[in-house]
């Protein structure tokens, strides 16, 4: 299934400067796998060695924080938007 992924500024070195890229997958995990196949190294910037979402990254599927749903197992429907956003803001 095709989804669009919003890439934060500091990860655009992996995507040739693109702020939005297309990817496929039906969960966040498979979307990240697909991205990593095309942009090697990108997944490791979002997911730590233990396979968990990094502490200072927030990921949203259709504007919903995946930490409120199933984390990396969160389903991603066809046409969904995934946003990867640095967590260190606000207050």
């Amino acid at each position: 299934m095709a989804v669009s992924v919003r890439i934060p500024t500091i990860l655009r070195t992996y995507t040739d400067g693109a702020s939005v890229v297309e990817a496929s997958g039906d969960t966040l995990t498979t979307v990240l796998d697909d991205l990593d196949a095309r942009f090697p190294g990108l997944r490791a910037r979002v997911v730590d060695d233990a396979g968990a979402l990094r502490r200072f990254v927030n990921v949203y599927v259709n504007d919903n924080d995946v930490r409120f749903s199933d984390g990396l197992a969160t389903p991603v429907g066809d046409g969904a938007t995934v946003s990867v956003i640095p967590a260190v803001a606000g207050g």
Binding site: S83, A89, G90
Partner: peptide
Amino acid sequence: SYDDVNRLCSEVAAE
């Protein structure tokens, strides 16, 4: 919510 606003601003700030 504020957290929604904060996320929006992180995205606006990038562009």
